[in-house]
Amino acid sequence: MTTFRLTNDRLLEVSLQGEKVMALAGAMVAYDGSVRFEKSMTGGEGLLGALKRRVTNEGMALMVASGTGTVWFANQARELTILPLRGEKLFVESRSLLAFDPSLRTDSVFTGLRGAASGHGLFTTTVEGTGNVAVMSFGHLLEFEVGPGQPLFVDPDAFVGHRGSLAQEFVFDVNWKTMVGQSSGESYQLKFTGTGVVYVQPSERK
């Protein structure tokens, strides 16, 4: 498993001893040692995933770094969080993915009818298996625990991802229109029910 460490809140340090790491193309800010960067056509999800991604716009340009040395990753001075996965599946907006262990399987899944007004993809990215994922947020990431009888409502622009056994719904609230802020055309909230964790950034900036 590739070792992830945060140098500080906004800089990710990955030590490679012959391993690989998948990352957002262009997010390398520095490296030492002997490291090779290559374009990755697929995020590890196979041909079907690549095809889907092309259709869905949920795609991100990925690169794979391999070799021996340390690589530092960052993007737009956004705050970073390392989420270690132990066999679970993480749903995450692709705009929030910075880097992940190449042994993790990624895919894109249909998440419903949102995006019609927002320009969001109709798909979100899933990451599954055992290994580290580094996600980005504007402001430090918040982790909300959802339990039975305690649904959580989230602003779609602040939504980053979720894991556990959660159902996601779109709640169209007439009153919600009065909440519309800034340039966004959203008129719905995301509602999560079940048991699991929802990741939210303290910002409505996409």
């Binding site: 500080n8 809140d9 906004r10 800089l11 390398m28 800010v29 520095a30 490296y31 737009q76």
Partner: peptide, 21 residues
């Protein structure tokens, strides 16, 4: 843009940096 980080360079450890960073 974000904290400034100092990376130590030694003769045995050259560092490569993205020009934008």
């Amino acid at each position: 843009d974000g904290d400034a980080i100092g990376l130590e360079v030694t003769s045995s450890r050259p560092v490569s940096v993205d020009p934008q960073a």
